[in-house]
Write a protein that binds this DNA or RNA. Structure first.
Length: 356
DNA sequence: CGGATTTGACCAGCGC
DNA sequence: GCGCTGGTCAAATCCG
């Protein structure tokens, strides 16, 4: 809030320059972005500030590999297509990998952790910010899985003596947009803010958070879209090595356990299901639409063509109508995929793991 | 008092 | 090589 003002000074430095850079670029690089419309679900925040010990949001944050985009994180029925953007991003994980990726990506890794390896910008210009591309170079390390994260975390502490010849390793990222009045969305995990920087071309600063759980090196960045201040762009990096500290109290018992945790808190916050680590299913999930899972949620989702950069990533709008009770919405939605995604987008494969 | 946030400084990667 | 920028550190400060 106020901090934004404070940063004004710095902002001035960036006011010009190219346009759409910051998060837009990044998102592209991450190959995935989602757009959620969330009223003020997070307002509650209050207590203890930032650390954000709210609940709900994405239990997920296991964020295996952003590269695969949420698509793979959401074990659900697949959609034939979504938007070209989706396809693009998805393609990366599947057969059509970007050149760079192709060479470095021998094949899909059965291990969840390894999944991170898969990340590579879906878009050529992704390199802009998302160091994501770096991962490829550090493939091996990445393979070590989140365990590595921990070490990495520690290493980072000492940052100073950081190894030189070795590029800083980046965790796969996953970015999505959320329409919300609050910057720090409730995702069920506890975060500690460790930095804030003015964002180039944006009047809003970018905040850096780190999961407070020891050993968990997950980080996330939060910033507002300069184009639409009402939109908050959250970028997660890394994979949680622990379950959400918040109990999915309000779980909607319809969803698979695995995802329930993630959606559970939906009532009060935005949640994304825990990744299923099902690399082996990639070929099946490739074209899935991440929001398929939302079908279980009391949400009214509509795909949207609007997007940050109208380029390579899908933009989705998740509208939550707080005016009505969640349950009401749920009923209205029937909890069917169709309620969220245009029927033509729904392909089939209800089995995969998710039995909507 | 302990934990979280703020914020200036520092460092590394990247483009020119 | 230099400057810009993103990301992180860490001391100071805030807050319950």
């Amino acid at each position: 809030m106020r901090k934004y003002m404070d940063n004004k000074k710095e902002e001035l430095k960036f006011e010009n320059s190219m346009s759409n850079s910051t998060f837009s670029d990044e998102i592209q690089g991450n190959s995935f972005a989602a757009f959620f419309d969330m009223p003020t679900c997070d307002q509650q925040g209050g207590g203890g500030g930032g650390g954000g010990d709210q609940k709900g949001f994405m239990d997920l944050l296991g964020i295996p590999e952003y590269n695969q985009s949420l698509l793979d994180w959401f074990p659900t029925p697949s959609t034939t297509t979504t938007t070209t953007a989706t396809t693009t991003a998805t393609a990366t994980t599947t057969t059509t990998m970007p050149p760079q990726q192709q060479q470095q990506q021998p094949q899909e890794q059965p291990l969840p952790e390894s999944s991170e390896v898969l990340n590579t910008p879906a878009t050529p210009n992704s390199s802009s910010i998302s160091s994501s591309s770096n991962e490829a170079a550090n493939e091996e390390q990445i393979k070590a899985g989140h365990e590595e994260d921990q070490d990495q975390e520690k290493t980072k502490k000492q940052l100073k003596p950081k190894k030189k010849n070795q590029k800083r390793q980046r965790e796969p990222r996953f970015a999505f947009m959320t329409k919300s009045e609050v910057d720090h969305l409730d995702d069920g995990y506890r975060w500690r803010k460790y930095g804030q920087k003015a964002v180039k071309n944006s009047p809003y600063p970018r905040s850096y958070y780190r999961c407070t759980t020891t050993g968990c090196g997950v980080k996330k960045r939060v910033e507002r879209s300069s184009d639409d201040p009402s939109i908050v762009v959250t970028t997660y990096e890394g994979q949680h090595t622990h379950p959400s500290p918040v109990t999915p109290r309000g779980s909607i018992g319809i969803m698979p356990e695995a995802t329930a945790a993630g959606f559970g808190a939906m009532t009060s916050s935005f949640v994304i299901p825990q990744p299923q680590y099902q690399q082996q299913h990639h070929h099946h999930l490739l074209q899935q639409h991440p929001y398929m899972y939302s079908s279980q949620l009391p949400l009214n989702i509509s795909t949207s063509t609007t997007n940050l950069n109208s380029s390579s990533f899908p933009t989705f709008i998740q509208e939550r109508h707080f005016g009505t009770s969640p349950s009401a919405s749920l009923l209205r939605d029937h909890g069917l995929l169709q309620d969220i995604v245009p029927s033509q987008m729904i392909r089939k494969e209800p089995k995969e793991e998710y039995n909507g």
